[in-house]
């Protein structure tokens, strides 16, 4: 757009309504988290192949 040389940018301070940051609403109290149960994992995760190996070695040594 053509216009003759003007002193200022055509400038008006037209503020917009203020923006708002978000906040988390309060939340109801949760039930307590799950309890950590104790297990003997060495027994629970004992692998079958190792089981065989142990059995065979048992026989070998028992002989």
């Amino acid at each position: 757009k053509y216009e003759p040389l003007q002193l200022m940018k055509r400038h008006i301070e037209a503020p917009l309504p203020r923006l708002q940051l978000a906040v988390s609403p309060p939340t109801l109290r949760d039930l307590p988290p799950p309890v950590l149960e104790h297990f003997d994992l060495n027994e629970a995760f004992f692998s079958v192949r190792d089981d065989f190996a142990q059995l065979t070695s048992k026989y070998i040594y028992d002989d």
Partner: peptide, 15 residues
């Protein structure tokens, strides 16, 4: 995967 019904694995995983 090795012990699909393991209570220990399921409980600790859940935790």
């Amino acid at each position: 995967q090795k012990h699909p019904k393991s209570r220990a694995a399921l409980s600790l995983l859940g935790y």
